[in-house]
Amino acid sequence: MKTNITPNFRGWNALILHRKHVGECKLAQQLSRLGIKSECRGINAVMNFPQVDVIFVDVDEGIDEMFPWLAGDATIPLIGLLGSEAPGRLAWALSQGISSHILKPISHSGVFSALTIAQHNYQYRLNNLQEIANLQQRIKLRPVVLRCILQLMDLANIDDSRAFMAMRAIAMQKRISIEELCVSYVDDSASLMQLYQSHLRGDLYSRVLK
């Protein structure tokens, strides 16, 4: 069974973008209990944006272009502080890519769970974005794979399925994607043929062993 490790935010720095108010003091106090240093700034103060691990932003007064990144491309987890539930404000929060939220009035409960959920969601989103970028790159290289397979079919006088299986087996052996392998060998007939022959010798060798 997987162990759920206790989330620990000791040593984190947080930025609270909200006009100063008793609620934000409570938030700062609760963050301090969790080992997090925080700084509270007004919503418009985006100059000298500090290096922090998490941002709490007032969704009621949040404005476009308040962060030094494009909307939705936050480089750290954003936690929305929600008072109004007007659809326009919620849409703004979603457009910024908030990872979790706390309802106002801010009390001492809810901060730990908001941080835990935000950290999880932010990491999950990052992993997904990375995976999507990786898959998009591979899709872009489909024509290269196709050309390489056609070249191998022609060179080795084999059908498409044998050519593809050979390239896929080689890629797996080298622990790279078939796209990466094809990029290295496409339009280089001599190297491609050499690669295929050494693959066949490897196959023969493993058959002898059996």
């Binding site: 206790t6 620990n8 935010f9 000791r10 209990r33 969790l34 080992g35 730990f112």
Partner: peptide
């Protein structure tokens, strides 16, 4: 002779 332990309800210092 056990010593007092300051409460750490969120196990921040664990």
């Amino acid at each position: 002779n056990v010593k007092q332990v300051i409460a750490d309800p969120y196990l921040v210092n664990f």
